[in-house]
């Protein structure tokens, strides 16, 4: 595992009117790591993701990906550069089948132009076939094969979460950012999710940044954790250090008892 950061935020500040959602935040995500971003409700975690993926341009600071500044770049170009994400509240293409959802993810790497399939050019047909095969392969690897022809909106909740990840993987990312993947899951399901994230990292050679409220998942799977409160960084370190950090305990007091999940 290399230690040069794949992603780095330098003093990023994001304001909405009077609300400072992210306040002078600097953090980095080493290549090959699973990094966690935690914090109480409204701490600004999702806003950090929206800044990384290009939905918001921060008022100050920089986002660097592979050493290159990507601040303010359009979301689709950031995806092309190799960052894929999922959403806190699932956003699938509901009227399309699971297979189509994944194929849409493949589109960003597609080379043939839109008019090529209309003219039945063989290279376009070949690429379309390759995309369908790749998508089926992804569905198979994420245990979604039985849903391939089903409408995405009709899938069970857990399958929808996995499908969102499959769709993100279809864009061939090097960094995957997951916004609360365990939300709405029962303990068994989040247990399975932990193994799943480990598998993703090794099988797909990914770097993963995740927001998660489920401390068991965060502590179990993250190499390094950043803690946010009111948009400010209050701590960072490995699971052990975070668990014993008085500031973090303070921030979560009355909320989640970190040690109970040890």
């Amino acid at each position: 595992m290399s230690t040069s950061p794949l992603l780095a935020l330098d003093s990023v500040t994001m304001r909405f009117g009077g609300v400072v959602a992210v306040d002078n935040l600097s953090l980095h995500v080493p290549a090959g790591s699973v990094t966690g971003l935690i914090g109480p409700n409204g701490a600004g975690k999702t806003t950090v993701f929206n800044v990384i993926t290009g939905f918001y341009t921060p008022q100050a600071g920089n986002v660097r990906f592979r050493g290159e500044t990507i601040t303010g770049r359009q979301p689709h170009l950031i995806c092309k550069a190799g960052i894929a994400r999922t959403f806190q509240n699932i956003r699938l293409f509901g009227n399309e089948t699971a297979l189509q959802n994944v194929m849409i993810g493949c589109h960003v790497r597609q080379k043939s132009a839109w008019w090529m399939p209309v003219l039945c050019l063989p290279q376009a047909a070949r690429e379309e076939r390759a995309i369908a095969e790749k998508s089926l392969e992804l569905l198979k690897r994420l245990d979604l094969m039985i849903y391939a022809g089903e409408k995405a909106s009709s899938l069970p909740y857990g399958a929808q979460r996995r499908l969102e990840i499959a769709r993100a993987l279809a864009t061939d990312p090097s960094l995957l950012v997951l916004d609360e993947p365990a939300a709405g899951m029962n303990p068994q399901e989040s247990q399975a999710l932990m193994h799943f994230i480990e598998r993703l990292r090794t099988e797909f050679n990914l770097t993963i940044l995740l927001i998660e409220h489920d401390m068991k998942v965060v502590m179990g799977v993250c190499d390094h954790i950043w803690v946010l409160e009111y948009g400010k960084l209050i701590a960072d370190g490995d699971a052990q250090a975070i668990r014993n950090n008085p500031k973090v305990i303070e921030a979560y007091l009355g909320g989640e008892d970190l040690n109970s999940h040890a």
Binding site: H76, K80, F87, F93, E96, I104, H107, T171
Partner: peptide, 12 residues
């Protein structure tokens, strides 16, 4: 279906 998700998935 979802313009925002489409942009995130790399669609111009």
């Amino acid at each position: 279906d979802d313009e925002i998700a489409a942009r995130v998935m790399g669609v111009n």
